[in-house]
Design a protein around this nucleic acid. Structure first.
Length: 491
RNA sequence: GGCGGCAUAGCCAAGUGGUAAGGCCGUGGAUUGCAAAUCCACUACCCCCGGUUCGAUUCCGGGUGCCGCCUCCA
């Protein structure tokens, strides 16, 4: 498989510049994206992040790259951000429900994957778990100690930020100033307030702990991603992605400890997706305005959620509003309509050159060019989607005009499906729900529509309209097209 | 308190130093027995105040608002 010609540029947080993408190994892309900490159900913030990266991964594959996508599952280690006692989120939940922490992690990991399936997000090639990579984490810590970048204090191991001059290269933070400006005193065992834990001593109340050269304990938050990304992608790899909120300190710490341990460059391109708000305000548990993915999917199809999310650039903050979702849904129906129109036409289109082929060919060429230009420009999905709408408009017009050949229509269909469906995941999957739910009613509807046709021929329109209204009242929409009536079940 | 980002039509949202994509909604038209769908047309002086420039929505400074991170901790 060869890689298609492209001019992909992406904004690298490391350096804050738009750079041309050049893979470490030609034809291959290694990418690591920070996965969820599985202690509760996934919400819209997760959806924004993982749908964005899903489109990015799909685009790389579309270009012909062999992609190795690694996304971790964090099942240990994060501490509650606003708790005084620094309690592990998963352990806290486990204690509440009186089960083992891994049961919590397992349950929510499943829930997460189910949500992602609902959103049409493809699985990563590997979903490694933090608790299954403790030895790898310990090994890195040992390397850091040996190189003088980490030290033991009070049973804990800390990374010495002062020993690593590049610290701050990602977030662009002048850490010295930051420290100066605060009244922070060096607390606990740290030599420097900027230092962060690589390994924590486990006190008896801790449920999950592991043996280490430094006694019973558990890993710090940042070290897991260094261990898992480098294990599966190498000490230097192409792309590291994640949410903007993890840029500092999480990713900053990852870079420092990884580079210090290996002497290699770690990730070459850093991609950060922006957040999602609701009605202009952030979503949070305390405000009670958060939305769980599984709840939203009860209201609207996954493709609608994708259309809404991809309608905003991944680096821009999205604003979730009910109206916005409705708009995304309505627009998506047009994208689905033209798909159906092309598929229908394939059944009847003649072979051999036809007068309408030029218009179709034009629409395809324009779509192909504009879509790729948009995605090549830092994965600009909103622009890519606009090229889809432009295509739909042209294609609908073409199909209503001069005859179109099967070949031309087929080429248009293939391109459209590859881009709208394959890359952005906005098209219903073939053999999806719709046909299945229609199946059992098909013979009955044939009878009903046949009778209605006879009534129409006799111009008994009051009766045909009653029939249509009554069908609508039981959730069946009938539309009269010039090729005859079509029907579908709503909802 | 500190650092960084954003602010575009009723809603969602791209983008550019030279008078602003696309989607939804709305209006008018074509088509239709009607409706739906489809197609065509129309709808924004880009948060406020200064500055740079021949010219700024796009650059700089200030203000306001919102978002993220840090400030307790990993």
């Amino acid at each position: 498989m060869t890689v298609r010609d492209h001019n992909l540029h992406l904004v690298n947080t490391l350096g804050r510049l738009k750079e041309r993408f050049v893979p470490l190994v030609p034809g291959h892309v290694g990418i690591y994206v920070c996965g969820p900490t599985v202690y509760s159900d996934a919400h819209l913030g997760h959806a924004k992040s993982y749908v964005s990266f899903d489109a990015i991964i799909r685009y790389f594959r579309h270009l012909g790259y062999k992609v190795k996508y690694v996304q971790n599952i964090t099942d240990v280690g994060h501490l509650l951000d606003n708790a005084d006692e620094g309690e592990d989120k998963i352990e806290r939940r486990a204690k509440l429900e009186r089960v083992h922490p891994l049961e919590i992690a397992e349950a929510y990991a499943r829930s997460y994957f189910k949500d992602m399936e609902g959103l049409g997000v493809a699985y990563a090639d590997l979903h490694p778990r933090a608790t299954q990579h403790i030895p790898e984490q310990i090994e890195i810590i040992e390397q850091l100690i040996a190189k003088g970048n980490a030290y033991a204090a009070g049973g804990n191991i800390y990374f010495s930020v002062g020993s690593w001059k590049e610290y701050g290269c990602l977030s662009g933070r002048d850490t010295d100033d930051a420290v100066e400006g605060t009244r922070v005193t060096v607390r606990g065992d740290k030599r420097d307030p900027r230092d962060f834990a690589l390994w924590k001593h486990a006190d008896p109340s801790h449920i999950q702990w592991w043996r280490s050269p430094w006694g019973k304990g558990y890993p710090g938050w940042h070290i897991e991603c260094s261990a898992m990304s480098m294990k599966y992608l190498g000490e230097e790899f192409d792309i590291h992605g994640g949410g903007l909120e993890n840029q500092f300190p999480h990713h900053e710490c990852e870079i420092a400890q990884s580079r210090a341990a290996t002497g290699k460059g770690f990730a070459r391109y850093w991609l950060h997706n922006n957040m999602i708000n609701r009605d202009g305000v952030k979503m949070s548990k305390s405000l009670g305005n958060g939305i769980l993915i599984k709840d939203l999917l009860k209201e609207v199809p996954g493709t609608t959620v994708r259309a809404f999310l991809l309608g905003t650039h991944y680096r821009s903050a999205a604003n979730f509003t009910d109206e916005g979702v409705k708009a995304a849904h309505a627009g998506l129906e047009r994208l689905h309509f033209v798909l159906g129109a092309m598929r229908d036409r394939m059944k009847s289109a003649p072979s051999g050159a036809q007068p309408g082929d030029a218009a179709v060919g034009d629409a395809v060429v324009t779509l192909d060019r504009d879509f790729h230009a948009a995605m090549d420009d830092d994965f600009n999905t909103p622009i890519a989607m606009s090229s889809l709408y432009e295509f739909a408009k042209r294609m609908n017009a073409a199909l209503a005009g001069a005859p179109v050949s099967k070949e031309a229509c087929g080429a248009a269909l293939d391109t459209y499906v590859a881009l709208a469906g394959g890359v952005l995941g906005l098209l219903p999957v073939e053999g999806d729900s719709e046909d299945g739910r229609k199946g059992d009613l098909e013979p009955v509807m044939q009878v009903v529509l046949d009778v209605r046709r006879l009534l129409r021929e006799r111009k008994l329109f009051d009766l045909t309209d009653v029939l249509r209204d009554r069908l609508a009242s039981v959730g069946i929409d009938v539309k009269d097209t010039k090729d005859g009536p079509v029907w579908q079940r709503r909802g």
